[in-house]
């Protein structure tokens, strides 16, 4: 117990630093992720069940767009999550960078992959919605372009991460890229207000009451929760895999049962 402290965060508040490190220690994170996985998974299944029923059966058709607007129930949650996951991604990277917590890099890496997936889904479903309503699959307007930049940021990070062999260097370089990319988030959100775009303005997150009928809003919000639960499920699985890869020689890994 009289060993000198060897972690690099010694210059900061010691009690805070040690608390963080204990919380972020690989075995405890692995245990927590394992316990949480089924909860998130079942919550996702339940929300998708209720949400899809509401989106496809309960919600009435739109006065302008008929049934084509139903794409909103997958498009908007994917777009929300593409940005929310980016925030987690950047914060997790920063935690790894500042406090030297490796779990931060693992959360960032896993989030980048899922975030890229959601961004792709938002762009693809938006394109499928745009063709019948706007009359074009793709337009270079500010909203669509900034969302494409988001996809490129995620892909750039993943390319950078796979190009650097040393995990610590890769994590730090990636975290810097993630933090710089944060500037894109307000641009995406406000693009429809700052510039003339073909894309419509915000419906739910604007000031005042959402301009969407309650029978459409409820399924939309449930689908939003469903996507969040899906993210958390995949995040837990990804973090566990990342920890195993990183700590394969650690003693706590050897005590794990091979079954699950």
């Amino acid at each position: 117990m009289s060993l000198p402290r060897s972690d690099q965060s010694g210059h900061s508040d010691i009690s805070l630093g040690t608390a963080f490190h204990r919380l972020g220690s690989p075995p405890s994170v692995y245990r927590l992720a394992t316990q949480l996985t089924p909860w998130f998974a079942w919550a996702a299944v339940a929300c998708f069940g209720i949400g899809l029923y509401g989106a496809l059966v309960v919600a009435p058709p739109d006065y302008q767009q008929g049934h084509a607007y139903r794409i909103i129930f997958v498009h908007v949650p994917a777009a929300w999550l593409s940005m929310a996951v980016y925030v987690v991604f950047a914060i997790a990277g920063a935690v790894g960078l500042i406090w030297h917590i490796k779990v931060g890099f693992i959360v960032a890496r896993t989030s980048a992959l899922i975030g890229a997936t959601y961004t792709f889904l938002a762009l693809a479903t938006g394109s499928i919605w745009g063709k019948p309503m706007w009359g074009a699959w793709w337009v270079w307007d500010a909203r669509l372009t900034s969302e494409l930049v988001l996809l490129l940021l995620y892909l750039g990070y993943l390319a950078l991460d796979s190009a650097i062999d040393d995990r610590r260097t890769a994590g730090r370089a990636g975290a810097v890229l993630a933090l710089v990319g944060l500037v894109n988030l307000p641009i995406i959100h406000y693009s429809v207000e700052w510039w003339n775009t073909l894309h419509q303005g915000a419906t739910v997150t604007k000031l005042g009451a959402p301009s969407i009928h309650i029978d459409m809003l409820v399924p939309l919000l449930i689908m939003g929760i469903a996507f969040k639960m899906h993210y958390l499920t995949v995040l837990m699985l990804g973090v566990r895999a990342g920890l195993l890869k990183q700590e394969k020689r650690a003693s706590w890994v050897k005590t794990l049962s091979p079954a699950r």
Binding site: G66, A68, R70, I71, I128, P132
Partner: peptide
Amino acid sequence: MGGYGAYVWSAYFLC
């Protein structure tokens, strides 16, 4: 889906 079946279902299927 009121004639938009191909669009709506392909978006949901993709997801």
